[in-house]
Each structure stands twice: as structure tokens, then as C-alpha cells.
Computed example of a mutant assay.
Amino acid sequence: MFVGITNTPRPYAWGSTTAIAELLGREPSGEPEAELWLGAHPGSPSVILDPTQTGGATDLAAWIAADPQTALGPFAASGRLPFLLKILAAASPLSLQAHPTPSQAAAGFARENALGVPLDAPHRNYKDAHPKPELIFALSPTFDALCGFRPLKEVRELVTGLLAAADALEDPQPQPIEDLLDSLSTGLRETFEWLITRGPGVPTLVALVSTLADTVPELAVARALAAEYPGDPGIVISLLLNHVTLTPGEALYLPAGNIHAYLGGLGVELMAASDNVLRGGLTPKHIDVPELLGVLDFTPVPVPYLTAETPAPGVSVFRPRVPDFVLYRVDADATVAITGPAIALCTSGAVTITGASSSSALARGSAAYVTPDEGSLHLSGGGTVFLATTGS
């Protein structure tokens, strides 16, 4: 069964006012449009276009709850769609954040339940018992992000270079930079903890790095962050992290423990259906430092590109090593086999998708939920489709 779905973009303040509308051929709302959610997450479940197909259910979450066997097939026992597909449009930086492992999520959710912390409490860390790995696929000419800790040697070289810039100020202030170098000698974790807790000297260091950012090219990211979040220690934390600029078709995979922040751009985001976020700066929201430190992986890593498989011309498959999701990008006649539920979104042209028992015609901006019994899907036409489904 193919079930037409839609949704209204989330109006988070950091969202673009035009990017999602332009991509999908819609009229802009006039407000920020940050994320379009396609899935069954209770925060914004997709709206079903024709409820007569789903026994009267008007959204995807309600239909899955009422008829999990039809909607989920082999995933019916879990009672949940394991992934969430989004279009994300960032006009300004998002918060620094990380997500827990499966065991951390389960333990944290149970712990906060036992303590009686309301699910909607602003200081609650774990809204569910699930992990939240995610990938981002760039659509805009550039998509900028911070992702994972850089090698300590690279960080020290960058900070050492700032000493000369600090000395050149009209009122030289090298001491805060020297303090940062001294902290780095103890390791990335210790430096991060000193910064995030606004330890001795950190406010002065943040102010100095914000000043230097106006003249030092290597501090372009810090300069943008200082403009959005003046005085935030995340300005200096950004120096510890990999900065990447994706071009269209490139993707990142962000596993549990990876600290990251999307800085700007339009992309397709696919993640496990969870709302567990541990924030680490660049936000007015709650930051639980001890819990964050327990979740973060401080091991330096290269930029976590996710390389596509190309099983056929016009088909790109982004397959991280998780069971929750796989992302297909299809812009040619092709066949894709699914073993679980899927969501298809057309971003250009028009495409017909034919399964085992029915078919669906998708035009630019339209989406459909595909039940697992459709099996092998044949896509034809002159458009581009992003297809999210479960991993193997």
C-alpha cells in the first residue's frame, strides 16, 4: 500500500524562510521553516492525505498504533517506525549536541522515569529509550557542520597560531590563549570540561577568541558563532572540532557520542526515531554537563563522511552500520528492494513507484508511506526521489 503523506515545517528560529519551500515547490509561510518531518514521531507525525486508506486514522502515528501489522509488517512487534526522514534548512547555527548509545538511552530513560521527571520537563535529557544516530545529505551548494573532535596536535597548532594574533592587539592579551594551551596539555576531555563549565578564565578566553575572530581567517566559524551566541563557550569549543563544508551529494554519518552542530545549509536528514539530545553549547536550553560528559566520545576522528554505494546508474545508497535506516537517492529508472516500511519523497520532476500490489505517482514536493508488503519497488520517470527505509 502507498499512503500519501504531508506535514507542516517546524518553525524553529534557526530555520530558513525560503529553502524548504523552494525545494518542494511550495509557498513559503513567511516564518522560519527549519525542518519538515516525515514519519511517525509524536512530536510531529505526518498527516495522512486520505484517511479512508487507513481506517480513518489522520496521521501516521495513529495509524501505526491502530494497525501495526499492516503499517509495519515485520516491525509490528515493536509498534514503532524506527526512522524519521527530514528536510532540514538551517539559516543560522544549531546547538552543539550529541546522542546516546542504545544502552545509555535505555538506562537514562529508565532513571529519569524512576525519578518522576515529567517527559516535557525542560531539564529532562531522555524523552525515550532509543538511540539517535543520524546522517545528513547535502542539497545546497554548501552545507557546513562541526562534527567530532580534531586531533589534539591540530588543535594545539591552531591555538599556538593565535598567540601571535593576540600579541598584535592594541592591548595584547596572550594569557587566555596560553591558558588554553596549558589546558590542552591535559587532554581534550579536560579542556572541554573546563570550557563547558565556564571554568576560571573561560569568559575572558571566549571574549578574546571572539575579538580575534574578526581578523584571523582560521576563526571564520568562531566569528559566525560569536555573532549568534555572544559569550558562549561553544565559540572556543568549535576550535576543538572538525569543520566540514559539504557539497551537493555528499553526506555525513553522526553516530552516538559524536559532538556536532549544523551551521548552515539545506539537506536531507535521516535518523533513528528518537528525541534524545544532550546539548553542549550554542543554546539557551538545558545543558546537563555530567550526562553530556558521559555520552561524548573524545576520541579524535576524521570528518565522518558516509560514502555512497552505487548498485546501479542513478542510484546512490547511504548505508550506515545501524539497523534503523538506509537512505536511497534515485534519479533514474531503477528497482529498490525493501524488507520493511519506507517513505518516499520526490524533490524534482515526477516519478511513478510500482510495488507488488499497487503504485503511486509522486510529483515534486509530494511524499508517500510504503508498507513492507510492496517488496520490490520499481521507480520510473524523470525525477529525483529520496527513499528512506530500514537497514538490513
Rank of each mutant, 00 (worst) to 15 (best):
I64A: 00
P131N: 12
G56R: 14
T58Y: 03
P74A: 05
A65F: 09
P122H: 11
A138H: 03
G56I: 00
P151Q: 13
F83E: 01
A114C: 06
A145G: 12
L49M: 11
F109T: 15
A61Q: 05
L135G: 08
L96Q: 10
K86L: 04
N125T: 15
A76H: 03
T52S: 14
T142H: 08
F75Y: 15
P74T: 00
L96S: 10
A90I: 04
D67V: 13
S103T: 15
A89M: 03
S103C: 06
K132D: 04
R150G: 02
F143N: 00
N113G: 13
A61F: 09
Q104W: 13
A61G: 08
A129G: 13
K132T: 13
L88C: 02
P93G: 08
F83P: 01
A106F: 15
R111E: 14
S78Y: 01
P133L: 05
A57N: 03
P100V: 01
Q69V: 05
S78V: 13
R111F: 11
P74Q: 04
H99V: 09
A114K: 11
S78D: 10
P131K: 11
A90E: 05
Q69G: 06
A66W: 03
A114H: 08
P74M: 07
A62W: 00
D59F: 00
S78P: 00
E112P: 07
P93A: 13
Y126T: 11
L96Y: 15
T58D: 09
A90G: 11
A129V: 15
N125D: 15
T101W: 15
A57W: 00
S92V: 04
P102R: 05
D120T: 12
L72R: 02
K127S: 05
L119A: 15
D120L: 07
P122D: 15
A121R: 06
L60N: 02
A114W: 07
A61H: 12
Q97P: 09
L88Y: 04
F149I: 09
L96E: 10
F109N: 14
Q69W: 07
A98R: 05
P68R: 08
A57V: 12
L60C: 03
P45K: 01
P68Y: 01
R111H: 14
D144A: 13
A61P: 01
P82I: 00
L84C: 06
